[in-house]
Design a protein around this nucleic acid. Structure first.
Length: 405
DNA sequence: CATCCACAGGAAGGACGGGGGT
DNA sequence: ACCCCCGTCCTTCCTGTGGATG
């Protein structure tokens, strides 16, 4: 018993505050985003002077600090508003979760509705009534409202964007600014031109972080997250370098650091070392693959299974060979067989998810096809074997030769 | 050098299901 | 309550093509 408590107490000594490493945490200091912060601030500043601010469109890949900067600005703006006695409101909406026109309007409107007033229900009201209620509530504040739509590309339909971005025309005493955030560069191309011009009055690009910049970010957070002297010197540069290889994703770097420390803690080690980072890298990858595989539709699972079974016996497969195995597996499992055209698309999807590799090769006279292999096949196989909707692949042997005749 | 394999991958359309508008 | 539109999944049909082989 004593030993158990001893271990637990010892392991407490790594983290001081784990929360600051979580993606949801918004730090007070954002290294290497000063330029973006200043630009965004100068775009929104007119609002505090009673002028109408522009709408902004922000884009950049995942983990480049888009959301953090937006939330940070929101906080600052609220503070400045209090100082200047201007009524400021900041609404943050993640469109991946709130993804329909009605729910966006409802969410924004409810933000402005006072506690004792009737809130707008989840469903039931005509959309235009929600809109006019929203306009009315904002008008009443006689102040500034900044509305952030994170992941705007996930929004179904662009009507909401149109309505929201032209709200200023319906307002007299209040002003709004819409900030749209997206990681899809081509997103605006598909928008209604009117929305495009009103939302994209200003554009901000967030470039990926370099390895050095990631180091600074991690260092800053590590000071808050960990106790003194628990992180070895090479750990942070390593996390930064690994994340920079991907696409300068700060979230990934922070995850690596956090998981490394968690592993160290669980192992009862007093310091986080390079070894833990390597283990963390592995664990994160395994978790990612597991999650992807687990949530794959049945047909994709069968295709993946065919790829694994096939590569176990032949070191690379062509689309045609994979398809033969796939058909056989389907018949055994009593699942309907898709056409080769469709299976080819499923193979592409699996390739894009990064759980198989499929590259186009030409075998000259013997055709052009994709060569397929599987990166971490044993991990994937484990996940697939636990799935009881699939045929059991123990002792299964593909018989290509006879089928190919 | 033309040929020709075994596909890649685009186009069009059918079936189906869910969500929003009326 | 109903319908319609849209997205997803899948099929059918099709044209395009890199490069070993004759």
């Amino acid at each position: 018993m004593k030993d158990i408590f001893h271990d637990l107490l010892a392991s407490r000594s790594i983290f001081k505050n784990k929360e600051v490493l979580r993606p949801s945490y918004v730090p007070d200091f954002l290294p290497h985003r000063e330029k973006q912060i200043n630009e965004l601030a100068s775009i929104l500043a007119p609002a505090l002077r009673g002028e109408t601010p522009s709408n902004v469109f922000i884009y950049g890949k995942t983990g480049t600090g888009k959301t953090a900067v937006a939330k940070f600005i929101g906080k600052q703006l609220m503070e400045k508003g209090r100082q200047l006695k201007v009524n400021t409101n900041f609404v943050y909406i993640n469109c991946e979760i709130v993804d329909t026109q009605y729910r966006v309007l409802q969410n924004v409107a409810n933000h402005f509705i006072k506690a004792w007033e009737e809130r707008i229900p989840f469903t039931g009201w005509p959309t235009d009534e929600v809109y006019s209620r929203l306009i009315h509530s904002i008008e009443r504040t006689k102040g500034v409202a900044v509305i952030v739509l994170d992941e705007v590309d996930k929004l179904k339909g662009d009507e909401v964007l149109y309505n929201l971005s032209r709200m200023n025309y319906d307002l007299k005493d209040a002003r709004t600014s819409i900030i749209g955030i997206s990681n899809d560069l081509k997103f605006t191309e598909f928008l209604d031109p009117r929305v495009k011009s009103s939302l994209g009055e200003e554009n901000l690009v967030f470039p990926p972080y370099s390895a050095d910049e990631l180091c600074d970010i991690l260092g800053e957070r590590a000071k808050m997250a960990f106790n003194e002297e628990v992180i070895e010197d090479n750990v942070i540069p390593l996390c930064a370098a690994l994340a920079a290889q991907e696409h300068g994703d700060a979230r990934r770097a922070l995850d690596l650091l956090r998981v490394s420390a968690e592993i160290a803690e669980r192992l009862g080690d007093k310091k986080v070392t390079e070894k833990h980072v390597r283990m963390a890298e592995n664990k994160i990858e395994l978790d990612r693959v597991t999650e992807i595989v687990r949530t794959l539709p049945i047909q994709s699972k069968i295709v993946l299974m065919a790829a694994i079974v096939g590569t176990e016996f032949y070191d690379s497969l062509t689309t045609g060979e994979l398809y033969l195995i796939y058909k056989d597996l389907c018949r055994r499992a009593g699942i309907n067989v898709l056409t080769q055209r469709r299976v080819a698309d499923l193979i592409s999807e699996l390739d894009m998810l990064g759980i198989i590799n499929a590259r186009i090769i030409s075998k000259g006279r013997y055709g052009r096809t994709r060569e397929i292999d599987v990166s971490s096949s044993t991990k994937i196989k484990e996940v697939l074997e636990k799935d009881d909707t699939l045929p059991n692949l123990k002792d299964y042997k593909p018989k290509l030769q006879s089928k190919l005749l």
